[in-house]
Amino acid sequence: MIAVIGLVAGVLIGLVTDVDVPQFLAPYLPIAVVAAIDALAGAMRAMLEGIFDDRVFVTSFISNVLVAAFIVFVGDQLGVGSQLSTAVVVVLGIRIFSNAAQIRRLLLKA
């Protein structure tokens, strides 16, 4: 519940405060957001499996975001930034889907 409230509050703050994405963060924020969504889906699944651990969640959340951003950064330096961004998004998308499928199986047994 607190997670949902936090999410909604974050969206509202983001909409109300007119924060511009800093130039150096602009290529990484979308990837970081996708990585965070992936971590959140993983956490949801872990909670339903009864193995949720807040320390694991925090570290996975932060490391997911950082690794994703780092991969894109390295890609930018190598001149394959947009391709690597696509690769990261594809991988994270697959993970989000498989986590969502697992959550569905746990909740609905289907």
Partner: peptide, 11 residues
């Protein structure tokens, strides 16, 4: 963390 995520998404 969800707050952070929501903020990031909205931005």
């Amino acid at each position: 963390l969800c707050l952070l995520l929501g903020f990031g998404v909205a931005t």
